[in-house]
Simulated scan of single mutants.
Amino acid sequence: MGTSDDRPKYEFVDMDSSGEGAVRTAFTNQVAYCEANGAPITARIVAAILAVVEGERSNALIERIRGWHGAPLADALPLRVAGGIHSLHLSGDAPELMPIYRGIPAADTDIVEQVIFGHEAQLLPWLDGPPQTNEAGRSSNFIAAMLWLASEGLPARFECLELGSSAGINLMLDRYGYDLGGVEVGPANPVMTFKPEWKGNPPPDEAIEIVSAKGCDVAPVDLTDPAQALRLKAYIWPEHTVRFERIEAAIRAASDKKPDILKMNAAAFVEAELAKPQAEGTTRVLMHSIVWQYVPKDQQQRIVAAMEKAGARASADTPLAWVSVEADRTVHRHVLKVRYWPGGDEEVQLGWSHAHGADIEWLGA
């Protein structure tokens, strides 16, 4: 299933590219990506950071960016720095950023340069790990995929396993309500409700149940800790005000009952969970969103091998599925894909999705 004819195409960028020119490519690609996803303020910040990096001044932060040892796009280097700068704005420590975050025309490069050189010690730690882009709106994709899996004849009771759960916001997907192209799913009194702009046919109208949801992260975030919650908010693009409302709702939900998150790497988690007995009449589903690029290559290989091995022993009563929502940088959208075993182990693209669940273009039958 291909892209829509009117979807703009961008130059292909190898997510794993490194070396000369890779830092500039990562920042310019991130600017275009932000602009394509309704985030002009974040695009301004990222563009200004690049201008400072390519300028004449230097400090430890700038030198780490210039000499980045990994793949800057796969490592989300631009968003690491942008998250740190946003945190200074949210905490009130850098009032000079106010015009940019209010969307007012300003001397962006001069302002960001002042912040980078005035808050070097506060910003340096933000380079040490990838962004925690936990967004509840992505749950709509997972639910739509489960509706489709149920329509394919898989048991409609789902045991969910999530990679890169961060704060576990998507692990609470059974507490949310959904209106997906007119198909309504969820409890009578949901914590919050999602109604993404829907394009295409509605998903299948099936009765589904989430029987369990467990996730992993190498650095889990505790939503009930105000300091950790503030860090998570710093990665929210400021243009998307509804996302701040969602995270506050998620904080309240986590305060009532914390999501089940293990501190583990992705491969070890998948191998351990797939080795456990599976109840008959349930579909075990591995799911992840905007995570795969952060998983080391050796762990990716282990996960694929573990899934295919488990898929080979899956049965009609105990099937296995794999649902992913990951970036396609050639169109600056996200691809919703599904595999399942037995019988349908070829990957199927079910749709295109906005980065934060604002809209879904459904391609599934």
Rank of each mutant, 00 (worst) to 15 (best):
260 D>C: 07
286 L>E: 00
252 R>M: 13
274 L>E: 06
243 R>L: 12
243 R>I: 05
244 F>T: 10
287 M>G: 02
291 V>Y: 02
300 Q>F: 00
290 I>N: 08
231 R>N: 15
280 E>Y: 01
303 I>R: 05
277 P>Y: 02
235 Y>T: 09
294 Y>R: 03
299 Q>N: 12
237 W>K: 01
287 M>I: 11
278 Q>S: 03
255 S>K: 12
286 L>R: 00
299 Q>C: 08
288 H>Q: 01
298 D>C: 11
272 A>S: 12
282 T>H: 14
284 R>K: 12
293 Q>K: 08
293 Q>D: 10
282 T>N: 13
236 I>Q: 07
287 M>L: 12
246 R>V: 00
244 F>Y: 15
279 A>I: 04
226 P>S: 13
288 H>N: 05
229 A>E: 14
289 S>A: 15
243 R>F: 05
268 A>S: 09
287 M>A: 09
238 P>I: 14
290 I>W: 08
268 A>K: 02
272 A>F: 02
296 P>L: 01
268 A>F: 01
278 Q>D: 04
300 Q>Y: 00
225 D>I: 14
272 A>T: 06
294 Y>F: 11
261 I>H: 05
237 W>C: 05
226 P>C: 12
251 I>G: 00
298 D>M: 10
301 Q>T: 13
245 E>R: 09
247 I>T: 14
284 R>Q: 11
269 F>W: 06
287 M>Q: 14
258 K>T: 04
298 D>G: 09
277 P>D: 02
287 M>E: 06
237 W>M: 11
226 P>L: 14
267 A>S: 05
292 W>D: 05
225 D>P: 11
252 R>I: 11
274 L>I: 07
259 P>S: 08
306 A>F: 11
305 A>I: 11
251 I>L: 04
230 L>N: 10
306 A>C: 14
273 E>I: 04
252 R>G: 09
302 R>Q: 09
228 Q>G: 14
269 F>R: 02
285 V>M: 15
294 Y>T: 01
241 T>Q: 13
244 F>S: 08
238 P>H: 12
265 N>S: 10
277 P>F: 02
279 A>T: 10
250 A>S: 09
293 Q>C: 11
305 A>N: 09
266 A>T: 02
233 K>Y: 11
272 A>W: 02
262 L>R: 09
250 A>F: 04
269 F>E: 04
285 V>S: 15
258 K>L: 06
258 K>R: 11
277 P>I: 03
235 Y>K: 10
298 D>V: 12
236 I>V: 09
230 L>D: 15
292 W>L: 07
301 Q>H: 11
243 R>S: 06
251 I>M: 04
240 H>N: 07
290 I>A: 13
246 R>I: 01
290 I>F: 06
240 H>T: 04
250 A>D: 08
294 Y>W: 03
278 Q>K: 06
269 F>M: 05
248 E>G: 08
243 R>N: 10
246 R>K: 03
226 P>R: 14
249 A>S: 15
276 K>Y: 00
296 P>H: 00
280 E>K: 05
292 W>N: 08
304 V>K: 11
230 L>V: 09
283 T>V: 08
286 L>F: 03
227 A>Y: 10
250 A>H: 05
301 Q>P: 03
237 W>P: 01
293 Q>L: 13
248 E>H: 10
295 V>T: 15
283 T>E: 09
289 S>T: 15
252 R>E: 15
299 Q>L: 05
259 P>N: 07
263 K>P: 05
251 I>N: 04
